[in-house]
Amino acid sequence: MIKCQACGTQNLDTSQFCDECGDALIKYEAPNPPKSDTGTSETVIETPPPENPVFQAASVTSVGVPPVQGKDEEAEAEDDAGDDEANDIDRFKPHGVHANLVIERGQAIGTEFPITSEESNIGRWDADNGVFPDIDLDAHDAEAKVSRKHARILFKNGQYMVEDLGSTNGTFVNRGRRLIPGNPHILSDGDEIIVGKTFLRFQVVK
Rank of each mutant, 00 (worst) to 15 (best):
T14E: 08
D191F: 10
A127V: 10
P66M: 01
C21Y: 11
G166P: 02
A58W: 07
V54Y: 04
I135P: 05
V65C: 05
D141P: 00
V63G: 06
L101Y: 03
L154S: 04
L101T: 00
N87K: 14
N87R: 14
I193E: 04
V205S: 07
G176A: 04
Q159T: 06
P31L: 14
F92Q: 02
V54P: 00
A57K: 09
F155W: 10
V146I: 10
D23G: 00
E112M: 13
I186R: 15
P133D: 15
V63H: 02
C7S: 06
D13T: 04
D128G: 13
G64E: 08
G8S: 09
A144G: 04
V205I: 13
P184K: 12
A77S: 13
A151W: 00
R124M: 00
P53C: 03
G82H: 08
D128V: 08
E85N: 10
N87G: 01
N121F: 10
P184H: 12
N183V: 11
M1N: 13
A151N: 05
R91A: 15
R201D: 04
I109N: 08
R91F: 09
G64L: 09
K27S: 09
C21S: 03
R178K: 14
A151T: 07
E73C: 04
K27E: 11
Y160Q: 02
E46W: 07
F172S: 02
N183T: 10
N169Q: 12
P181F: 15
A108S: 08
M1G: 13
E74H: 02
L12M: 04
G170P: 03
T14C: 04
N169V: 01
F113A: 10
D88M: 14
M1A: 11
Q16C: 03
G110Y: 06
R105L: 15
G170H: 00
D19V: 06
E85I: 08
F55R: 12
A6Y: 14
A151D: 02
R201L: 13
K145S: 04
F92R: 01
S188Y: 14
Q203I: 04
G176L: 04
E192H: 13
Y160E: 03
A139F: 14
H150M: 08
A127P: 01
P48M: 12
P53V: 06
Q5M: 03
G106P: 09
Q203M: 08
E118M: 05
C7W: 03
R124H: 02
G22W: 06
T40P: 01
Q203Y: 01
I194V: 15
T38V: 12
T116V: 08
K145P: 03
F132I: 09
K149C: 07
Q107V: 14
V204C: 01
Q5N: 07
E51R: 08
E20K: 10
K3M: 06
